[in-house]
Design a protein around this nucleic acid. Structure first.
Length: 426
RNA sequence: GUGGGCGUAGCUCAGUUGGUUAGAGCGCCAGGUUGUGGCCCUGGAGGUCGUGGGUUCAAAUCCCAUCGCUCACCCCA
């Protein structure tokens, strides 16, 4: 309860918790390497314009969720609310279209959105994601989905559900938009107030409204599948056939609409069971128009982002025990001030030989030191006492069975590996 | 941005219709063992009762405001 706490919607990841993050990050790195995705690290902040143009002015993110400020040079800067636009910017800026296509990239790190925090939603949250730039092949859409699933499986997540849809392209989506508006026109007065404003701004968003009245009105709503142009239809068809050929179950959700404007053709979400409101653990799709929107050359691309905070919640709700207990090979105990110097030498020598070692520093009783060593999970306590010092020896106590042996200090310092000090297994 | 729940020790919580120095368990520190952990016993430290104001002889308790946490809506990862 003292003065300053972490800002709202942020949190510290303490030892004991941080190992779970390292576990997830390791799996992301390994699977991405297998699929040929290489890591890219982009700045945590960008010119505001990148997100305004990339994500879309009419989206919630740009309208009310960005951390935007003016820097000392008068530039408008925004903490990144997502990872795709920065990656596309980097691809264009560094002319990665000059290397072998497609370019496969992955990233992970914090993102920032100004929202009211709740379970599975924070102001600083962590995502990893992949982007494949420079390919319009439906094989890449399938690969993207597959990478997500593979990572989640290796993490040990079970019962994941995948939903796919197609958003069409600049040729066919406007036609669907009109068809949708035509259907909704006579029912406007029965829709919720929010949806009435959506009608003009972004009618497609009405599709995933949760209001019961809206859902009823939507029962006979035309589906985008009926409006897709031949190219989009074929593309979507192939993505699904590839998924099926791999034996990957998925379901078609014609109402799946993503909140960022840049999506075209394939969109998908991965949903974790038993998670309540924030159950979408990853989402992504194709964004063939984004590079041009950012002022670069036309570049078809596809990718996804996954929320690591939510993955952790999902893992914990499935009872996965990821926390590793702290382990220590030895604790160096000191009896008598004259033994301090030798204890320091022994501790340093053991560490130089690769052992995990902590040593006493508070001048406490041996009893208290053993208690501390026990709590730290030390496999052994090496007692450096004035009594043994006279014999150039030290005592090694096995903390599991209580057995003790006296060993020469020279051996302890010069060849500790001969003493079987490794962590007691089991 | 909207709505609900909750703020008492490091943690989990108790605290009667408002009534003296605000408690318990666990954890922490020390002692019992002047050189031996886990179990046990004893002692100790640790609290602006979220914060500010109000009512009252008297507020952890009642009222108002505010901040924070949390859950849901919205939206999304």
């Amino acid at each position: 309860m003292s003065g300053i706490s972490a800002p709202r919607g942020t949190k510290d990841i303490l030892p004991g918790e941080v190992e779970k993050w390292q576990y997830m990050e390791d799996i992301v790195r390994r699977v991405c390497a297998r699929y040929g995705y290489r890591e890219i690290r982009t700045p945590l902040f960008e010119h505001t314009e990148l997100f305004q143009r990339g994500i879309g002015e009419a989206t919630d993110i740009v309208e009310k969720e960005m951390y935007t400020f003016t820097d000392r040079g008068g530039r408008s800067i925004t903490l990144r609310p997502e990872g795709t636009a920065p990656v596309v910017r980097a691809y264009l800026e560094h002319k990665l279209y000059g290397s072998a296509q497609p370019v496969r990239l992955f990233y992970h790190g914090p993102m920032f959105r100004y929202e009211r925090p709740q379970a599975g939603r924070y102001r600083q949250f962590h995502q990893f994601g992949i982007e494949a730039l420079g390919s319009q092949d439906p094989l890449m859409d399938t690969e993207t989905i597959l990478v997500a699933l593979t990572i989640f499986e290796e993490m040990g997540l079970e019962g994941l559900h995948i939903e796919v849809n197609s958003m069409g392209c600049p040729r066919c989506r406007p036609m669907y938009r009109e068809g949708l508006k035509h259907y909704l026109k006579g029912r406007l007065d029965r829709l919720c107030p929010v949806c009435r404003t959506r009608y003009e701004l972004n009618p497609v968003r009405i599709l995933d409204c949760k209001e019961n009245t809206c859902r009823e009105e939507l029962e006979q709503v035309p589906e985008i599948g009926d409006y897709l142009c031949p190219e989009c239809r074929d593309h979507f068809e192939l993505v699904q056939r590839y998924l099926t050929s791999l034996g990957r179950p998925y379901s078609l959700n014609p109402r799946l609409v993503r909140g960022l404007d840049y999506y075209t053709k394939t969109v998908f979400e991965v949903i974790a069971p038993g998670m309540g409101a924030q159950r979408a653990v990853a989402g992504g799709g194709r964004y063939d128009g984004l590079a041009e929107e950012c002022g670069g050359r036309a570049t078809p691309a596809v990718g996804f982002a996954a929320g690591m905070d939510r993955l952790l919640l999902a893992l914990e709700s499935q009872g996965k025990e990821l926390s590793l207990s702290r382990e220590l090979d030895a604790f160096v105990a000191i009896v008598g001030d004259k033994a301090r110097m030798m204890a320091l030498k022994v501790a340093v020598a053991l560490r130089d030989h690769g052992f995990r070692v902590e040593m006493e520093t508070e001048g406490r009783s041996l009893r208290a030191q053993l208690k501390t060593a026990d709590r730290l999970g030390a496999a052994h306590v090496i007692i450096i006492g004035e009594e043994e010092l006279g014999r150039n020896a030290a005592v090694i106590r096995n903390m599991e069975d209580g057995g003790q042996q006296e060993v020469p200090l020279a051996q302890l310092i010069e060849s500790p590996e001969s003493l079987s000090l490794q962590k007691i297994s089991g």
